[in-house]
């Protein structure tokens, strides 16, 4: 009985994700938002906007720095999970 609620929540989240995938543009679609302007803007303006000549660094650390912050948090959580899994109690540590 206890497991019903997590299963329901997970099913709801999974449903949401599947619906999101269905809304995504098809692979290689020329009219996808990623291909309508933002790519040209990155290539044209990234040096003036960020001062970095490496466009990839400009994208992941300036335009999408918030995303990279989340990525760093994933690493943090990974270490936390390993610590928790290997913790053996006060008298052993």
């Amino acid at each position: 009985m206890k497991k019903v609620l997590p299963v329901l929540v997970l099913a709801a989240i999974g449903m949401l994700l599947v619906l999101t995938v269905a809304e995504m543009p098809t692979f290689g679609d020329g009219q996808a938002p990623a291909h309508r302007g933002v790519m040209d803007k990155y290539l044209r303006d990234s040096a003036q906007d960020t001062g970095a000549i490496n466009t990839i660094a400009a994208i992941i650390l300036d335009y999408r720095a918030y995303d990279t912050l989340g990525e760093a948090t994933v690493l943090f959580v990974a270490v936390l999970a390993v610590s928790a899994a290997l913790y053996q109690g006060e008298h052993h540590a």
């Binding site: 001062g51 970095a52 000549i53 400009a58 300036d62 720095a65 990279t68």
Partner: peptide, 18 residues
Amino acid sequence: PLGVPGQLWSSGMILIIT
């Protein structure tokens, strides 16, 4: 301060965050 693109001390916060 963004500095001159292409020099080592440029690009403001990108270098610090790296």
